[in-house]
Computed example of a mutant assay.
Amino acid sequence: MRILEHPILGAPKKRRQVTFTYDGRELQGYEGEPIAVALKAAGVMVHRYTAKHHRPRGVFCAIGRCTDCVMVVNGKPNIRTCVTPLAEGMVIQTQDGVSVKAEEKGAV
């Protein structure tokens, strides 16, 4: 499920494979790729659920502008996974809603 060669960016550079945890499951991805890319390659499409109606959300804009892909990363909520690089040992969790701090900043 990975893009092997992008028509504009070309082929991705060879990267080191790393292990990370997603909702208690051990998965693998490539160091430096966006977390969302590693999750999609592992078949994960839901990154968070809306607070009010518990509706699933995943990657939408893929450029860090919306909050659909936010997740809890290493205990910190509201991390935009589409623009955050994957690193060895990261602990990633599905998020419920978006925190008040993000709403105050107008990020919702």
Rank of each mutant, 00 (worst) to 15 (best):
M1R: 12
M1E: 11
R2P: 01
I3L: 11
L4V: 03
E5P: 00
H6P: 02
P7S: 00
L9V: 08
K14W: 02
K14I: 13
R15E: 13
R16W: 00
T19H: 04
F20C: 11
Y22N: 07
D23R: 06
G24V: 03
G24K: 04
R25Y: 05
R25I: 02
L27G: 03
Q28G: 03
G29V: 12
G29C: 11
Y30T: 07
Y30G: 04
Y30C: 06
E33S: 08
P34R: 03
I35Y: 10
I35M: 10
A36T: 11
A36P: 09
A36S: 15
A36G: 06
V37W: 07
L39E: 02
A42Q: 13
A42G: 11
A42V: 09
V44I: 15
V44Q: 02
M45V: 14
M45S: 13
M45Q: 12
V46L: 04
H47A: 08
H47P: 05
H47Y: 13
R48K: 09
R48W: 12
T50S: 15
A51H: 14
H53W: 09
H54N: 14
H54C: 07
H54V: 10
P56Y: 11
P56S: 14
C61H: 02
A62L: 01
A62R: 00
I63M: 06
I63W: 00
G64P: 00
G64A: 01
G64W: 00
T67G: 01
D68T: 03
C69A: 09
V70G: 01
N74P: 02
N74F: 07
N74Y: 04
G75E: 11
I79E: 09
T81N: 12
V83G: 01
P85S: 04
P85G: 00
P85N: 04
L86D: 07
A87R: 14
E88P: 03
E88W: 07
M90P: 10
M90R: 11
M90W: 09
I92F: 13
Q93D: 10
G97S: 06
S99H: 03
V100N: 11
K101L: 15
K101M: 15
K101A: 15
K105N: 07
K105F: 09
K105W: 10
K105D: 11
G106I: 14
G106H: 10
V108Y: 03
V108T: 05
